[in-house]
């Protein structure tokens, strides 16, 4: 180490100071340029896209492709399916995971971590390992191309995740409060409904947004369980496969827009601190 001291001391300071703003600007571009591309291409006239140097700016934007997909109507089905599946998945995930997460959070420490790790281990399996069997069975049960089948499949990935987050939320609610409620005359169920769940509302809301996002974006199970009733991600894939660049970009933009909004509102919950506990635990 001592040999690098000479190189280290002041030599690093100056380039860092000079390069820092440049680096920040470059990284902002790296993040923003691809997103810009989707929206730009979706309004680009065909002529702008060809050749070895497609134009980086659109001079005469056109809403043709937006009009097309909005009017042709083959967007509404997938949009509705994606919305419905994401919403039902979220609802069911909370109804199933929240009560269980509460109980898990009240287990003795060793057992609690055992259960949480067990839940996370299910995530180590490739979706295909679960999906091959699930898709085969769903096919037999007639669940292919149904909303219900896809909701059930999306719950596989969401439940361990939401349960894990909510266990952390419930752990922060002191047991004193439950005891106080019991002394005040609440039953066990009353304590949960009037004290515990209202206090966990913030955590439940954040967790459900994550689940909603997951389901909205999910591609693999959707592909395994769909033959003709696409979700939005499948619609994007179809456009990639056989559409024009602008069609692809337009459907992609439709899929992305709500998410960018959600992430924008979610960002205050995406605090690094929220993860710190998970790492130490």
């Amino acid at each position: 180490m001592s040999s690098t001291v000479v190189a280290g001391k002041d030599v690093l300071d100056k380039p860092l100071k000079l390069l820092f703003p440049v680096w920040v600007v470059i990284s902002l571009l790296i993040v923003l340029f691809p997103v810009y591309l989707v929206f730009m291409v979706s309004v680009a006239p065909g002529s702008a896209l060809f050749g070895e140097r497609p134009a980086l700016f659109v001079e005469d934007p056109t809403l043709r492709f937006w009009n097309d997909i909005l009017q042709r109507g083959d967007l509404w089905g997938p949009l509705f399916k994606s919305l419905a599946v994401a919403s039902f998945t979220t609802l069911l995930a909370i109804v199933i995971a929240a009560p269980a997460a509460y109980v898990i959070s009240r287990l003795p420490v060793g057992l609690r971590y055992g259960v949480v790790i067990g839940l996370l281990v299910t995530r180590m399996f490739p979706e295909f390992t679960i999906g091959v069997s699930v898709a085969t069975r769903f096919a037999r049960l007639g669940l292919i191309d149904t909303y219900g089948g896809l909701v059930l499949a999306h719950l596989i990935g969401s439940l361990p995740f939401i349960a894990w987050i909510l266990v952390g939320t419930f752990e922060t609610i002191p047991r004193d409060l439950e005891e106080a409620a019991q002394i005040d005359g609440a039953s066990k169920m009353g304590t949960l409904l009037r004290v515990v769940f209202p206090l966990a509302a913030g955590g439940i809301a954040v967790a459900s947004l994550f689940v909603w996002l997951y389901s909205w974006n999910e591609f693999l199970y959707a592909r395994l369980l769909t033959t003709n009733q696409n979700t939005l991600p499948l619609q994007v894939f179809q456009a990639i496969d056989r559409g024009s660049r602008q069609q692809m970009a337009t459907v992609a933009a439709v899929l992305t827009l709500p998410i960018l909004l959600v992430v924008y509102f979610l960002q205050r919950y995406l605090k690094p601190g929220a993860l710190a506990g998970a790492v130490k635990g």
Partner: peptide, 29 residues
């Protein structure tokens, strides 16, 4: 169960319900 014993308890950490106003805390029982 506690609710049928007709007792009130004051906790070390007070255990006030954070989502209720003072009046609601006091009137909860």
């Amino acid at each position: 169960p506690p609710r049928d014993r007709d007792i009130a308890m004051v906790f070390q950490n007070y255990a006030l319900y954070p989502h209720m106003s003072v009046a609601d805390n006091m009137g909860f029982a």
